[in-house]
């Protein structure tokens, strides 16, 4: 019996001496939890549970507090993320707002790259052909009637757009379409669509751009206006 008590005390002392796996910080946006990235996932869960239970009594009936998780260099699978969210949600007034990790899988990184890079293509998209890219599209050439270009981001065409262009394919309404000669049969941005007028317009040799305005309509205007309308297009430093 004596031996057991002694041992127990010793273990406890060791545990007290180490750095805690979970540190909490209150900020004006809510609670930030820094989760250690060197311990095992199970240890982390255990300590998180413990800490949250301890602090639960203090403020259990207040308004919802948003929690930001910072997990450092630990990779969380979607299942683990879900587990953490439910664990924290169970503590009455806490809800996870964001989970930030320094690491991602190669697959995610490539996907991210695909969605943010500018893909340049030099060809004529002819009738019946479809050109589909994940990120922004820079087309050096024409889109002929019956041809379709689709991009997850913006579409820039150094040439004539006479076919269909669909920017923001995955729902990005901020996306724009720009072309040296803007004579499309149809323009689509996100889920908004616009078609060419039925009457023939005179040939203007001016570069133009299309974007969604405040009335949720696609408008075609002078290219130069983009600088004010979409300042985000300037990306001298690529990144987040």
């Amino acid at each position: 019996m004596d031996v057991f008590v002694e041992l127990f005390v010793e273990v406890n002392v060791v545990a007290k001496q180490k750095q805690p796996y979970v540190t909490m910080k209150g900020t004006k946006d809510g609670l930030t939890l820094h989760l250690d990235d060197t311990c095992s996932y199970d240890d982390l869960l255990e300590e998180l549970e413990e800490k949250l239970t301890a602090s639960e009594k203090a403020e259990s009936d207040g308004p919802l507090v948003s929690v930001h998780l910072k997990v450092g260099n630990r990779y969380l699978t979607p299942k683990q993320e879900e587990e953490l969210r439910t664990l924290i949600r169970r503590k009455k007034n806490l809800v996870v707002e964001s989970i930030e990790s320094n690491v991602m899988t190669k697959e995610e990184a490539l996907e991210w790259k695909r969605k943010t890079e500018i893909v340049s293509v030099s060809k004529i998209v002819r009738s019946g052909q479809v050109l589909h890219v994940q990120g922004d599209l820079l087309l050096i050439g024409d889109v002929n009637p019956g041809g379709i270009v689709i991009a997850g981001g913006n579409i820039f065409i150094l040439g004539a757009l006479r076919g269909i262009a669909h920017a923001g394919y995955y729902g990005n309404k901020e996306a724009v379409i720009a072309a040296s000669i803007m004579k499309p049969t149809q323009l689509r941005i996100g889920d908004v669509m616009n078609r060419a007028p039925d009457y023939k317009t005179d040939e203007r040799n001016e570069m133009e751009c299309a974007y969604i305005d405040e009335h949720n309509q696609i408008v075609v205007d002078r290219l130069q206006l983009l600088a004010q309308l979409r300042p985000n297009l300037t990306r001298l430093e690529r990144g987040v």
């Binding site: 004529i124 002819r126 009738s127 019946g128 052909q129 002929n144 009637p145 019956g146 041809g147």
Partner: peptide
């Protein structure tokens, strides 16, 4: 001309 465009695309 539209059909020619389509054919050229296929030939390319």
């Amino acid at each position: 001309v539209r059909d020619a465009d389509r054919i050229i695309g296929l030939l390319e």
